[in-house]
Simulated scan of single mutants.
Amino acid sequence: MKPGGQMLRVLAAAGLVSVLAGCENSATSYMIEGSQHALTLVREQKFFWHDELRQAVVVSRLPACQKRVRIHPGPTVLVEMRVYAAGDALWALHQGSRWYLVGTEACQLQDWDNPSNQPPGALLGSFVLKDGAPAFVPAPAAN
C-alpha cells in the first residue's frame, strides 16, 4: 500500500458516513391495539440532496395481515399527518391537501377524494416532528 493510502480510505469512509447521516429513514406508529394492530408512517430519503422523501404506511393487524403501501412523496420536513376515526376498523389520514382511507380488516389503503375536506370522525392524533424526529402525538382527550 502506498504511504497515505490508508489515511485516504479512512477520510473517504468518514466522508461517506457524514453524507449518509443527512438522510432521513424513519418509522413511527399509531398503536391501535398494541403493536400488533397499528398504522406506521415510514419516510425514506435515499440521498441527502433529494428534496422529496418516499413515504409509505404500513397497515398491520397481526397475525391476519400486514401490508406496506406507498403514498405520495413528502418534503424533507415532515408535513403533519392527522389520523381520524372513520368507522369500524377504518381510519382517515390527512396530510397537506391529500386524504387517504385505511382499513385494517383487509390491510388496505387508498387515496380518498374528500370534496368537503371535512374529517369523517374524531381526531385521534397526528404524526408530527417532536424534538426533531417524527413521532405520533395523541390528540388531547375530550373533556
Results as ranks from 00 to 15, higher is better:
Lys2Asn: 05
Gly4Arg: 10
Gly4Val: 09
Gln6Phe: 14
Gln6His: 12
Leu8Ile: 03
Leu8Pro: 00
Val10Leu: 15
Ala12Asn: 04
Ala12Gln: 13
Ala12Ser: 08
Ala13Phe: 10
Gly15Arg: 12
Val17Thr: 07
Val17Trp: 09
Val19Arg: 11
Leu20His: 01
Leu20Pro: 00
Ala21Arg: 12
Ala21Ile: 00
Ala21Thr: 04
Gly22Gln: 13
Cys23Ser: 13
Glu24Pro: 01
Ser26Thr: 15
Ser26Cys: 09
Ala27Tyr: 05
Ser29Thr: 12
Met31Arg: 09
Glu33His: 08
Gly34Thr: 04
Gly34Tyr: 06
Gly34Gln: 01
Gly34Val: 04
Gln36Ala: 13
His37Cys: 05
Ala38Thr: 04
Leu39Lys: 05
Leu39Ser: 06
Thr40Met: 10
Leu41Arg: 10
Leu41Ile: 09
Leu41Pro: 04
Leu41Asn: 04
Arg43Phe: 00
Arg43Ile: 02
Arg43Lys: 07
Glu44Ser: 15
Lys46Tyr: 09
Trp49Glu: 09
His50Glu: 15
His50Gln: 15
Asp51Gly: 05
Leu53Phe: 00
Leu53Pro: 01
Arg54Asp: 12
Ala56Ile: 00
Ala56His: 04
Val59Lys: 02
Val59Pro: 02
Arg61Pro: 01
Leu62Ala: 05
Pro63Arg: 07
Pro63Trp: 07
Ala64Asn: 09
Ala64Met: 07
Ala64Gly: 03
Cys65Glu: 08
Gln66Gly: 05
Gln66Asn: 08
Gln66Trp: 02
Lys67Ile: 01
Val69Lys: 11
Arg70Ser: 12
Ile71Tyr: 07
His72Phe: 05
Gly74Ile: 10
Pro75His: 12
Val77Lys: 11
Val77Gly: 00
Leu78Ser: 05
Val79Ile: 13
Arg82Gly: 01
Arg82His: 10
Val83His: 10
Val83Glu: 11
Ala85Asn: 13
Ala86Gln: 09
Ala86Gly: 11
Gly87Gln: 04
Ala89Val: 04
Trp91Cys: 02
Leu93Thr: 07
Gln95Ile: 00
Gln95Val: 13
Gly96Met: 11
Tyr100Gln: 10
Val102Gln: 06
Val102Asp: 04
Gly103Leu: 02
Glu105Thr: 12
Glu105Gln: 14
Ala106Val: 08
Ala106Gly: 06
Gln108Ser: 04
Asp111Leu: 15
Trp112Ser: 14
Asp113Pro: 00
Ser116His: 07
Ser116Cys: 01
Ser116Pro: 02
Ser116Arg: 10
Asn117Gln: 15
Gln118Tyr: 02
Gln118Leu: 07
Pro119Ala: 15
Pro119Leu: 06
Pro119Asn: 11
Leu123Phe: 03
Leu123His: 13
Leu123Thr: 04
Leu124Gly: 05
Leu124Met: 07
Ser126Asp: 08
Ser126Arg: 13
Ser126Tyr: 01
Ser126Val: 06
Phe127Ser: 01
Phe127Ala: 03
Val128Thr: 12
Val128Asp: 05
Leu129Thr: 14
Lys130Thr: 03
Gly132Met: 11
Gly132Pro: 08
Gly132Asn: 08
Ala133Pro: 01
Ala135Gly: 08
Ala135Ile: 07
Phe136Trp: 01
Phe136Glu: 03
Pro138Arg: 02
Pro140Asp: 10
Ala142Gln: 14
Asn143Cys: 06
